[in-house]
Each structure stands twice: as structure tokens, then as C-alpha cells.
Amino acid sequence: MGLFVRINAFRGVGHADVHAALAEFWSRHARRVEQVPADEWVDAFNLYEQRDGWTVMRWTSGWEWTLRRQAQLHVSEALGCAGILVFVYDGDDWGYELFDRGTAVDWFIQWPQERNTWFPGRDLSGRPEAVVAAFPDLALDRSDVAAYLVQRPDDEESDDAWDVPARAGDRFRRGDECAALDFLALLGVTVAVTEEGLGWPAPLWRRFRVEPPPADVT
């Protein structure tokens, strides 16, 4: 099984404020946010301290997709910030959902459009200018962002030319299961790769689970 990870990165807001906004969202859905001891071996959301202007949260391994994305939009709206959801699915491909002040504004997935099951009806080619506009303080170069937003070619003959590092100095090729980490590094979120797995750029601040409502037996 390849790398499977989903993370939120919120720009310019503190970790405590992100946690408070998440707790507010889940309470509206009759769900309680419960803190988990840092050393307890359970599947939990990991929220990291703000560093370099980013507050990063790693999702649990659960498959729920719709409510968690609504939660990130609530945080973005409540705190008036931009952010991004970056995910890697089974090491095969990666993608993102970009949002700003409560509205999703751009989407990208490496696989061509016809493989879309994540964001039905959306253009998945990614718009570099949207990424640049969402994070103006980073002074990103459009061409640098565009280098990562290149979808996998349909024919195998073109795959070798595509499967190269997006930019000089990158750690991974486009087809590598960790290719999304180079894109994150461009944004200023540097994730290490260790023998134990992924190493996050800031100390862990809090682990928590979202408890289901009493009537939910799933």
C-alpha cells in the first residue's frame, strides 16, 4: 500500500483559533471534539503549532470526505483566511482543494479529468494564478506553481518525459508517491521523510477525535 495522507494548511492563523473553529463546526453537527493524549496510539487528527505563517493539521485515516471539507471551509470563513487541502491517495496520485475565506476556488488532481471521483463536475487542471492570489504574502511565481500542476499523460510513451522533478532541486519526481511534498515545500510547508514516516515542520500541539453523535452507529 502506498502513501495515504490528507492535510489542511491554513495561512496566517493560529493553531488555537483553528481548533476553536473546528470545535464550533462539529458542535453544530452534534459532534464533540475530544482531546487525545499525545502518546496514545489511536487514529486522531494531529494539529501542529503555527510555524512560518502556517497551521497544519493532518486528518485521520477515516474515509469521510464531505463533512471534513465543509469543516475546513468553516475555519476559513470564521477566521478570514485562505488555506489548502493536499492529499495523496495510495501513492498513485495527489491533488488539492484551494479555498479562501470560506469558498473553494481551485482544484487539482494528477490523473486526467475522466478519473475524477474526488471533485465531480470541477475542472481539475489547477490554476496557478489562483494559488498565487490566495497567498499573496508568499510572493509565489506563477511559473513555479505551474510546474507542479501538470497532469499525468494518457499514453505511456509520454510518461517518461512527465515523470521528472517539477523543478530543479526537488526531492521527488512527479510520479513519486511523495511528489506532493515538493509542492508543499514551494508554499513553505516542509515535510520531512523519515524511516518512521512523514515528519511535520512544527511541534504537535494537540491530537483530537471527532466523536459521532449518540445515534450514529457507523
Rank of each mutant, 00 (worst) to 15 (best):
G80L: 11
W94H: 08
L204D: 06
L124S: 06
R101D: 10
W63L: 15
W65I: 13
D159V: 10
P214S: 00
A168N: 08
V75T: 10
E49G: 14
W111D: 09
L138P: 07
W94L: 03
G169L: 09
H19A: 06
V75L: 10
M1K: 05
H19N: 08
D90K: 11
W205R: 13
A130V: 02
A179P: 02
Q72K: 07
P214N: 00
D137I: 03
P165K: 07
E195M: 07
S27I: 10
Y89Q: 15
A71C: 03
C178Y: 14
F10P: 08
Y148G: 02
W26Q: 09
S125L: 04
F183H: 00
V164L: 14
F135H: 06
W41K: 15
V145R: 13
F99G: 02
A202W: 02
V13L: 10
G197N: 05
Q70F: 13
D159L: 15
C81A: 07
E177Q: 11
Q72T: 15
W54Q: 06
V33K: 03
Q50M: 04
F183T: 11
A44E: 04
G80T: 10
R167D: 06
E196D: 15
R174S: 13
G91N: 03
P136G: 08
A104D: 01
C178P: 05
D141C: 13
D159M: 10
W162G: 11
H15G: 06
S27E: 14
Q110T: 03
A161H: 04
T190P: 01
W205G: 13
F87S: 15
A168F: 06
S27Y: 07
C81N: 04
M1W: 00
V13H: 03
A82Y: 01
R142K: 06
W59P: 00
V33M: 13
L204G: 12
D92T: 03
L124F: 04
S27H: 15
L98R: 05
R173N: 14
V150E: 14
P136T: 00
P213V: 12
R209N: 11
L181D: 09
D155E: 12
D106I: 00
D163R: 11
G83M: 02
L140A: 07
H74C: 08
N8H: 15
P128S: 08
F4W: 14
G199L: 13
R31I: 03
Q151L: 04
A20Y: 10
R101I: 04
L124V: 06
D137E: 14
W63E: 15
A38P: 10
I7A: 02
G126H: 04
R28D: 13
F172I: 01
R174Q: 10
L22Y: 05
W94M: 02
T55E: 03
T190H: 12
V36H: 05
V191R: 03
R6E: 14
